[in-house]
Design a protein around this nucleic acid. Sequence first.
DNA 1: CAGATCACCTGCTTGC
DNA 2: TGCAAGCAGGTGATCT
Length: 218
Amino acid sequence: MGRQIKDVRRHGKQVFFELDGGVLYIHLGMTGKLLWNGIRTKYARAILGLEDGTLIYDDVRQFGRFEFYPELPEERQKVGPDALTVTFEEFLSRLKRRSGSIKTVLLNQAFIGGVGNIYADEALFASAIHPKARASKLSRKRAQRLHDQVLAILKLAVLHRGSSISNYVDADGACGSYQQQHNVYGRAGEACPRCGKAICRIVLGQRGTHYCPGCQHV
DNA sequence: CAGATCACCTGCTTGC
DNA sequence: TGCAAGCAGGTGATCT
């Protein structure tokens, strides 16, 4: 009510609207969308009237967050460095401290913020690393390739306005198109574009994981 | 302490 | 056609 938006920041998958006297914390979860002057469906969970328009927070599955805090609590800040800005040396030193599989480490937002299931699978494919490879055992060279590919894929996906698997749209209601360039995600059984072997789907860390058994190595 | 297993919620697709 | 099971862009709590 009568508050001003001073700044809008993003860190990993989290968005922060800095207001006078508080902060609006937003995480879209799996099916969350922010719609600018969009259609109010039955899944509109919050509606923000601004001077020049309306912001709707729409989320079918309600896994996302749209929360106002006078002061941002600690548990809303427990995220590692942002995937798009983390330096390679920082990325490598953090990798060395993780014992798990590289796929689950990439998904861990405390490691780096911003990589989700689609982009973890795509980045591992692009760098020819098996999702079960031990994070701490990756050579400097392979870690360098992975860091390069995480950045390249996230930037490319942003350029294509994301991946619309079933219903994601951006603030203007437009679908993303990056799903057309997925090499492994959602392509189990199809031929690997690099070596021709069939793409596999396994479950790793409770998440569907897609990779090529022919050219991604442990 | 890491890894597995649920839990949260709703809709769509698949298979009998 | 109907109905149950499995799947989904993500965390987070609680076990073993």
